[in-house]
Amino acid sequence: MTLRNLELRARTVVEGFWTGLHRSPYHGFSAEFTEYRQYSPGDDPRYLDWKVYARSDRSFIKKFEDETNLRCHLLFDRSRSMNYGSTGYSKGQYAATLAATVAHFLHSQGDAVGLLAFDDQMREYLPARHRPGHLRHLMLALEKPAGGHATHLVEPLSRFAALVRKRGLVIYISDFLAPLERLETGLATLTASGQEVTVFQVLDPRELTLELGDAALYEDMETGQRVYLDPATSRNGYQARITAHCEAVRSACQQHGIGYHRLSTADPLELALFEFLQERRRA
């Protein structure tokens, strides 16, 4: 995280993980042949194998493996709570690096990567593309400052479902520090539409432990609400509540077969990527 350039940071992380090729669920047009199929009326006659027809007088259609049709969308939380950080960098910077890394990695494999940034509403949408310069646009979008006075976790899911009809990969990156009502429903809708979803919950270590030091007047970064707080007296209750909250997110993900990764900003990013790739490899 010492590198200032997000793209450079992502490229650095991706190095060494070049083996992470995955099999596309789609068949498309590429040089690699996969199988033959009996021609049926309506098929494109361009793909008839004339040689086989000449040899056997039968009509077969050649099928090729599609290597470039993985569509990955990054659902990126850009709310103000992501600005918090006690490790020298904020959750937002950590999450942006994570998103950029994934984007760079997939782009390097020739996959199309899109972005949907949100806070309390959808702020920015870049369709999944694989064009020269698209990754650059995506990096710029990830580097934009956070805004909004709340986090709405379900709104981006419903907007995404309305925008993207094609199946693909959805990577949901947020701190999930928001009410979880209807989150499970949103995730269920997404998975039901054929999307493969992976959730990254990014949290600061102090958000898990409440090691904040002396009592002070604490201000909510999103709502601006101020309360007088003595962390020493509030710690136990807080830890129980944040743990229960994270468990609720995990439970919602597991119920729908969604991969859930809780990341602390103190953890190295490479580990996160490694875990992600391992999971995909298992899948």
Binding site: L177, A178, E219, D220, T233, H245
Partner: peptide, 20 residues
């Protein structure tokens, strides 16, 4: 009680005011 100290925190949704 050092009420003049102010600090930012990501979310106070899991916190309640604690008396000095």
């Amino acid at each position: 009680r050092t009420t003049r100290h102010r600090a930012l925190f990501s979310s106070l949704m899991f916190l309640s005011p604690s008396p000095p």
